[in-house]
Computed example of a mutant assay.
Amino acid sequence: MSRSTTVQNKIARIENVFLEKAQYNLTVREQKIMLFLVSNIDPRQKNFRTQIIPVKELEAVLKHDMKKWGGLYVEMKKFARSISKKQITFPTDVVIDGQPLEGYINWFSSVVPKRNEDGLVCISFAFAPELKHFLLKLKQFARIDRSEVLEMKSFYSIRFYQLFKAIYQKQEKYRTVVYKTISVAELRAMLELEDKYTKFTEFRRNVLNPAHAEINKYTSLHLDMEFQRNSKRQVHAVKFMICHRDDVPKQLSLLGDEEKRSISEMTKEEILARSKKFEITHFKKKYPGAYRDAVKKVRETFGDKIDPNHPAYMNSIVGQCHTWFVENVGK
Rank of each mutant, 00 (worst) to 15 (best):
M1H: 12
S2I: 09
I11E: 11
N16R: 14
L19R: 12
E20M: 03
E20C: 02
A22Y: 07
Q23V: 00
T27W: 00
Q31N: 13
K32D: 13
I33V: 15
M34S: 10
M34I: 08
L35Q: 08
L37I: 11
V38L: 13
S39H: 03
I41T: 10
P43V: 00
T50C: 09
P54D: 08
K56V: 08
E59S: 14
E59F: 00
E59K: 15
L62P: 12
D65A: 03
D65M: 02
K68P: 06
W69N: 13
G70R: 10
G71L: 03
Y73D: 15
M76S: 12
K77L: 06
F79L: 15
A80T: 15
S82G: 09
S82W: 02
S82A: 14
I83F: 15
S84C: 00
T92H: 06
T92E: 08
V95M: 11
I96S: 12
D97F: 06
P100C: 00
W107Q: 07
S110Q: 10
R115N: 13
G119K: 04
V121L: 13
I123L: 14
F125L: 05
A126L: 07
F127M: 10
F127Q: 12
P129A: 01
P129I: 00
P129C: 01
E130C: 03
L131Q: 05
K132N: 14
K132M: 05
Q140L: 04
F141P: 10
A142H: 03
R146P: 02
L150K: 11
E151F: 05
Y156Q: 08
I158H: 04
R159T: 03
F160L: 13
Y161K: 06
I167C: 05
Q169K: 03
T176V: 09
V177T: 15
V177F: 11
Y179G: 03
T181K: 12
T181M: 14
A185P: 01
A185G: 10
A189T: 08
L193I: 05
D195H: 11
Y197C: 04
K199I: 01
F203N: 06
F203I: 02
N206M: 09
V207S: 06
A211S: 14
A213F: 01
A213R: 12
A213D: 13
E214G: 08
I215V: 12
T219E: 10
H222N: 08
E226V: 13
Q228C: 06
Q228R: 10
K232W: 01
H236L: 00
M241K: 14
M241Y: 03
M241D: 01
C243Y: 02
C243A: 07
H244T: 05
R245Q: 13
R245P: 11
D246I: 07
D246Y: 02
D247A: 10
V248S: 11
P249T: 03
L255A: 12
G256W: 00
G256I: 00
D257R: 09
I263R: 07
I263E: 13
T267Q: 05
I271Q: 03
S275E: 13
K277G: 08
F278L: 11
I280Q: 10
I280S: 12
F283Q: 07
K286H: 09
Y287Q: 11
G289W: 00
A290P: 10
Y291I: 04
V295D: 03
V298S: 07
F302H: 07
D304C: 00
I306M: 11
D307W: 01
H310L: 01
N315Q: 05
N315I: 00
N315H: 09
V318A: 14
Q320K: 14
C321G: 02
W324E: 13
F325D: 11
N328G: 04
K331D: 15
